[in-house]
């Protein structure tokens, strides 16, 4: 059931996407008709006030949720009508999630947290293979020596890096990050952005980053703003921030300050 890319189709295309929640007598319209295309390999930041529908949008793109109306084409295939299990398979193969609250399994080592998606991909592989793959990713996010630490033994930034390693373990095409820096201090936020920019640049992973901080959005190539369930602006970033360069500069600044 692989989704063969249709030539000329963007990676993601949504048409008149709607989502409403019925709460008793009240109907909440979280998305009121969103049209958008996201090309493979792009880095899109989605901004907007709290309650503007960003997470709802991301959950639909991530196939965690289904739209109430409109169409969602993933690699040209209409996935809006897929059932639970078909969506689960697509999530496993094509999509990685990074959440604001990290969502790591408690009392479970970083290594095993990263391995989690491998348990559900239907491949029969040995525990050793899984460990090797997960360890490689932990090393890539700079946590090779922390592989056997449990989440409560890791800082927030380290936990988020474990979560990123987990999102990458099945080689997804898309990485969805919902306020990944929301619980982190500014320096750690830059470190996380450095990883996302590197993944986007080196592995051509499509990144959709949700944030309500405009300066964080500037790490993307394109910023889409939501208000009340609608897209109100969609623009390319003129002077894109470079997290790696900023990090290189940071310690120097601190040293100067210390003198």
């Amino acid at each position: 059931m692989s989704t063969a890319p249709v030539s000329g189709e963007p990676l993601i295309r949504v048409v008149d996407l709607r989502k409403s929640y019925v709460l008793g007598d009240v109907t909440v319209h979280a998305l009121r008709g969103v049209d958008m295309e996201i090309g493979a390999g792009s880095f899109v930041a989605i901004v907007g006030a709290s309650g503007s529908g960003k997470s709802t949008f991301m959950n639909i793109l991530g196939l965690l949720d289904r739209p109430s109306g409109g169409r969602y084409f993933l690699e040209g295939q209409d996935v809006s009508g897929f059932d639970r299990d078909r969506r689960a398979i697509l999530r496993n193969r094509k999509i990685g999630f990074v959440f604001q609250n990290f969502n790591l399994l408690p009392r479970t080592s970083a290594l095993e947290n990263v391995e989690l998606p491998l348990l559900y991909d239907g491949h029969a592989r040995s525990g050793e293979d899984r460990h090797r793959k997960a360890l490689g990713l932990l090393q890539a996010v700079g946590l090779g020596e922390r592989a056997h630490h449990t989440p409560n033994q890791l800082s927030g930034g380290q936990q988020q890096r474990v979560a990123i390693a987990r999102a990458l373990v099945n080689d997804p095409e898309i990485l969805l990050a919902d306020e990944p820096t929301g619980n982190l201090d500014s320096r750690t936020s830059v470190e996380i952005m450095e990883i996302l920019q590197r993944l986007n640049r080196e592995k051509r992973i499509t990144i959709i980053l949700i944030t309500h901080e405009h300066d964080i959005a500037e790490y993307g190539q394109r910023v889409v703003a939501f208000r009340d369930g609608r897209v109100v602006s969609d623009r390319a970033v003129e002077s894109r921030r470079d997290a790696a360069a900023e990090l290189a500069a940071l310690p120097a600044l601190q040293e100067e300050a210390a003198v």
Binding site: L64, D85, A88, I89, R93, N103, L116, P117, Y120, R166
Partner: peptide
């Protein structure tokens, strides 16, 4: 519940 949600998010199916 959250663990279940997370497992589902990373690809666990109903039967898993």
């Amino acid at each position: 519940t959250r663990e279940i949600g997370l497992r589902m998010a990373v690809g666990a199916r109903t039967r898993d």
